[in-house]
């Protein structure tokens, strides 16, 4: 009886120890994508990096949008939460997302578009710009570019990233696009309005999301989705 108890205790100890070792090993080496996928991703990134333009990367495993140029991440805008949306009727999806991770999305543009409320200088009103110290504190780009609390980055093929800003936006605040509310989604779900074929919903801290909007490249950037 005692022998059996001892062997049971030994077995339990072995199982616990093995689980611990497996866990430590799993933590030490994060899971990597298979080599063909890594190669395909690196190829995509190299193509974007050699384009001599700004491009974006959406990292799904460490949620963030990165503004990149020439293979360098210039700015990282962290994402609090990410969800993927699809049009549906009575819980049934109307479209299937397919394989979209690892691909390059093209033709990125902001909705509503970025507007810079530029100030026009009246000639003669500035007494020698380099000598005079302005009496008033001049505005910053944050004051000149209003950012809506919810905006959308639309890509070719109806793929979109909808960004919701969480918290108070520093600087000018714009109006959200009125045509993209719940009712529009409902109609799109029914097929009575053009639906986004794939929608990624991202919640971002207000200031990061606002910076992404204000720094968004003018020449429709491409986006690489990283798993």
């Amino acid at each position: 009886m005692r022998k059996r108890l001892l062997s049971l205790a030994f077995l339990a100890f072995s199982v616990v120890a093995l689980a611990g070792v497996v866990r430590v090993l799993a933590q030490a080496e994060p899971p990597q994508e298979p080599l063909p996928l890594r190669a395909a991703l690196a190829e995509q990134e190299a193509r974007l990096a050699t384009s001599n333009t700004f491009y974006l990367e959406l990292d799904l495993s460490h949620p963030a949008i990165k503004l990149c140029h020439s293979g360098v991440a210039l700015a990282t805008y962290p994402i609090d939460s990410l969800k993927v949306g699809y049009p549906r009727v009575l819980f049934f999806p109307r479209m299937h997302e397919g394989k979209w991770i690892g691909e390059i999305w093209t033709g990125g543009r902001l909705i509503p578009p970025k507007i810079i409320n530029r100030i026009r200088i009246t000639p003669g009103s500035v007494p020698s710009a380099e000598i005079a110290v302005p009496a008033l504190i001049p505005p910053t780009m944050s004051d000149l570019i209003p950012v809506p609390p919810v905006y959308t980055i639309v890509f070719d093929g109806g793929r979109v990233i909808r960004v919701t800003l969480v918290g108070k936006i520093t600087g000018a605040v714009g109006q959200p696009d009125k045509g993209r509310g719940w009712w529009a989604d409902f109609l799109a779900g029914l097929g009575l309005r053009r639906a986004d074929s794939l929608r990624i919903s991202a919640s971002m801290p207000a200031n990061d999301g606002a910076s992404l909007f204000r720094s968004f490249p003018d020449k429709s950037p491409e986006l690489l989705i990283l798993p």
């Binding site: 949306g85 049009p87 394989k99 691909e103």
Partner: peptide, 18 residues
């Protein structure tokens, strides 16, 4: 009806990777 949302977890990512 409208848009349904799913979490972008590891299983989803592996299912929808190219």
């Amino acid at each position: 009806t409208g848009y349904g949302y799913a979490d972008l977890n590891a299983a989803y990512i592996s299912r929808h990777s190219m």
